[in-house]
Design a protein around this nucleic acid. Structure first.
Lengths: 231, 231
DNA sequence: TCAAAAGTGTTGATACTACACCCATGG
DNA sequence: CCATGGGTGTAGTATCAACACTTTTGA
């Protein structure tokens, strides 16, 4: 693996982008994973792709989302970069990991090509600690390739730390939503139940929501008011 | 610029590591910068180096710290990765940026080779917002090369967000320190004065400090008790 | 004895937790 | 009328900002 440039003659690792695509499916936090028998039989991995010369990291993420999972126009942000030479058995690959949030699990499942699964993410570690995460599909553990279990663990920790004071939760919801839906997203990410009154008030007090004037339809029992983000 | 591997035949950008080395000098937050006349006359930039094949990012950071600024054994952590193709006029270079914290500004100044400066970092944006930062040495602005003004701005935002609930402030202090010194570090990073009683109590209530039994020496006026981190 | 910094006490305001309760709708 | 989830009220507690105050040292 050799790089030739006018100002850098060192052999360099390859550079890739991996994308953690999250969505809420049946009140569970799930992640799009791709079967990678070429690396290890039965193993699953985050979708990713190499960074081409002259293309930005954001462009590479959009390329991966478009090519691998047929998705366009969803929100994403950078998480961290992993560069251990042993993380990929095939050679030294440095991966910049991005988080992408899909608001519609049904649409995502429909868009995913053959070989993809949308398993639930579970963390065994409590509260403030960290550690690797595991993925389960139909109550069966999906083995993760490379260092992706560790990456998913870091992702969960970051999500849990940011969800209270950023708007990332709303990227997992449709444009208009009920407060209960927002609470479900928070509960799925934090992995514990929250008290309804406290959650409602804290959310409304942030002043980032406004009523759409519409009400939830189709549900049984009392319809909830629909809110949207003020932008 | 061409990469040749068994599994990746795309032309790729070069991969580098840049290090934001911070210290507290005269109650101001300062950053080690290197004169880079080769890029733009009179411009300064973060010290950095290319990532060699087979070396981890952490190893690369340690190499940069040892070679460029003659520093060993200081704490560092990853910040973010910048990959815009236009960020380096000489070619496409993706930089993984690290934050390193030096506890002793005097030792750092002594260690820095010719061509380095240790200017103060200033942010023009208030509170929660973000934006680029600028650097000033002897009340004179130092022009920053590449996208390093923007990187320093992001760094400051991250620092301000993390300082309240992590122990990064202590990496800018010697092993034993007074509460006033901790407050000075927080004030330098947050850019605003803090109330002494509230700060003391919040800090002591975290339960991460213990008295060393020793007192500050050499200072005029009443000596403060020295604390150390419980680990 | 004074200046300066270390360190403590107190009070009012705010935010959060936990629980109880009422409201609206489909069946 | 009942079950179910939407939505509100309230009391006790913890947290925090702001200020006043006492203590300890060197000069």
């Amino acid at each position: 693996m050799i790089i030739v440039t006018t100002f850098n003659t060192y052999a360099q690792p390859a550079l890739a982008v991996d994308v953690v695509i999250l969505t809420i499916k049946a009140s569970r936090l799930c992640c799009a994973l791709m079967r990678r028998d070429d690396v290890s039989p039965g193993a699953y991995a985050l979708p990713g792709g190499f960074v081409h010369h002259g293309q930005s990291l954001d462009q590479t993420v959009m390329r991966v989302l478009a090519e691998k999972v047929k998705l366009k126009g969803i929100a994403f942000e950078q998480l961290a970069t992993y560069g251990d030479p042993a993380r990929d058995p095939r050679g030294h690959v440095v991966s910049v990991v991005y988080l992408a949030l899909a608001p519609d699990a049904e649409a995502l499942m429909f868009a995913l090509p053959e070989g993809f699964r949308l398993p639930e993410i579970r963390v065994d570690w409590p509260g403030e600690r960290g550690g690797p995460a595991s993925t389960h599909f139909d109550n069966e553990a999906l083995p993760l390739a490379f260092d992706h279990a560790s990456i998913l663990g870091d992702t969960m920790k970051r999500l849990r730390g940011k969800i209270d004071y950023t708007n990332i939760a709303f990227a997992l919801l449709p444009p208009s939503f009920t407060l209960r839906q927002v609470q479900e997203v928070h509960e799925a990410i934090l992995g514990r139940p929250l008290l309804k009154p406290a959650f409602r008030r804290k959310l409304l007090d942030r002043g980032i929501l406004q009523e759409t004037g519409q009400m939830e339809t189709g549900g049984a029992y009392r319809p909830a008011t629909l809110y949207q983000l003020i932008s």
